[in-house]
Write a protein that binds this DNA or RNA. Structure first.
Lengths: 110, 110
DNA sequence: TACACATAATAAATAATACTATAATATAGG
DNA sequence: CCTATATTATAGTATTATTTATTATGTGTA
């Protein structure tokens, strides 16, 4: 409830487009779970596959979405490919979402 | 980078589903703009129509999406229907998004 | 060769968009 | 009251795009 929209409408439109683009990548149960896991550290695909119980091609497809948007980055180590968060803004958003959806209402400081 | 996932995987799945649902409503340029406008105070449909330049039925359709998800609430005053933010979590998210997408990098405290 | 992962190529289902038309509600004028 | 008009919502629809799961195949590494 503070000082949004000191910017003009065209800039707002631009920013809203950018934000919507990122939100679209986040607005997916599995991808959100993936990012949560990765927010705690690097993991390779087979780790994620086990933890989330998603079939490999589907998993790879969702990781591809996140990769193309730059939300995750990768590193190869032998036969494994390790994923990590690749955009700091994702961490900010995850923090906010964690507060809103994963913490019990009592521990809210509002 | 703090203490995500103290919750078990099933709770995470549930929370991720809830969060994804809300994010889907936000992940849309026009709806995001609508919410930004409303974050500064009540507005009626025709106000929004002028400010955003969206045709009335389309606008009403997007408002309907937000209404069904409880993200906005309404109040009738004469012939006009005033919309306002109906879920505090939306304000939190807008704040975060504002910081990430609407402020210049220099004014970031990271 | 076999393992780990990515990509491709679908098919099926679902959703988004822009329209036009019409309905519902409220007020104003006669 | 009755009617007209303004504001908003809903319905119907055609078009297009997106998502999802699958199966198959490709690529890089050991």
């Amino acid at each position: 409830m503070s000082d949004f929209a000191k910017v003009d409408i065209e800039q707002m439109r631009q920013s809203a487009g950018d934000a919507a683009l990122m939100l679209r990548s986040l607005a997916h149960q599995d991808r959100l779970l993936l990012l949560c896991q990765l927010s705690q550290g690097e993991l390779c695909v087979s780790d994620l596959e086990v933890q989330l119980g998603i079939q490999q091609p589907n998993l790879s497809q969702q990781l591809g979405v996140l990769r193309r948007e730059g939300l995750v980055a990768t590193r190869r180590e032998g036969k494994h490919i390790y994923y990590r968060i690749g955009d700091e803004r994702v961490l900010s958003l995850l923090q906010t979402l964690y507060g809103l959806f994963c913490q019990s209402p009592e521990e809210n400081g509002s």
